[in-house]
């Protein structure tokens, strides 16, 4: 690209420019890049798998079984490609990625050590179901986490949750705790398969949990056999909600608003 002449070039030792560089140099974004790479790899694998599924139905007049070996190869190739893509993209190679005072480019990748499960394994649904089932049985640790409860002005909660699914303060169920979103507490702390989750007390006094996910991070949980809970799914705008509850009907998820 040809660069036009600067209307007002900054002096070589401009103290303002130096201060801006000191204060506004981008931080290391490796963790975000790794997460995006993992999501992209999952998407790529899903697309290949979908293509393979299409292939399994076979063209008109051709038995599906005739295409089966090709489908298997496509699925296997999809997973191999996804794994290779994550390794290729998430591996730190850029020299300018680490600002002053942070680990250099050859330090262990932060995202990989902190969140080794960025690539959703094939058993995600079962794993997520086990986590959800176990969470409520373990107790209500999340109740001590940040929540927009009665102790905070409702308008602050509404604004904080603006554009995000939230329980209106006057809802029939009581919000006991929250993780993810802007709560400042990661749902990983509670071994929950969700970016954001709300622990609520139902009208019966029992506890339920509502997990809020984006479609592209939807774990599609399935509760383990014999679970004493029921799981209900609801789509709200661009979000997917799961309510895990001991009740036969969902009480909290239908009350969630954008």
């Amino acid at each position: 690209m040809s660069e036009p002449n600067d209307l007002d070039p900054a002096p070589a030792e401009d103290p303002i420019a130096a201060s801006l560089k000191r204060q506004f140099s981008p931080p290391s974004l490796q963790a975000i890049e790794a997460r995006v790479a993992a999501e992209a790899a999952n998407l790529e694998a899903d697309q290949l798998e979908a293509d393979a599924d299409d292939g399994e139905t076979g063209p008109a007049g051709v038995p599906a079984a005739a295409n089966e070996p090709r489908g298997w190869w496509m699925v296997a190739a999809a997973f191999v490609a996804a794994a290779a893509l994550v390794l290729l993209i998430a591996w730190p190679t850029r020299d300018d990625a680490a600002p002053q005072g942070e680990p250099g480019p050859h330090a262990p990748p932060i995202a990989q050590t902190e969140r080794p499960l960025e690539v959703i394994p094939p058993s995600t649904s079962e794993r997520a179901g086990h986590q959800l089932d176990g969470f409520l049985r373990r107790g209500d640790a999340l109740a001590s986490a940040d929540a927009c409860g009665p102790r905070e002005p409702p308008e602050v909660c509404d604004v904080e949750a603006g554009g995000y699914p939230h329980l209106p303060p006057a809802a029939a169920v009581t919000l006991l705790g929250e993780c993810g979103g802007r709560s400042g507490t990661s749902c990983d702390t509670f071994d929950l398969p969700a970016d954001r989750a709300l622990l609520v007390q139902l009208s019966t006094g029992e506890h339920a949990i509502v997990c809020i996910e984006h479609p592209w991070t939807d774990p599609k949980p399935t509760l383990p056999p014999g679970s004493r809970y029921n799981l209900f799914r609801r789509e709200l705008g661009a979000y997917i909600l799961y309510e895990v509850t001991p009740r036969p009907e969902p009480e909290a998820a239908p009350l969630v608003r954008l």
């Binding site: 974004l29 975000i32 790899a41 993209i89």
Partner: peptide, 26 residues
Amino acid sequence: PARFATLFRASSRVLWCVAVGVVGDR
């Protein structure tokens, strides 16, 4: 998706500056 991830990695620092420029808070 793969192309997206590659291009995102190449431009993430610039996009961060755009975000900070708009909100005025790093």
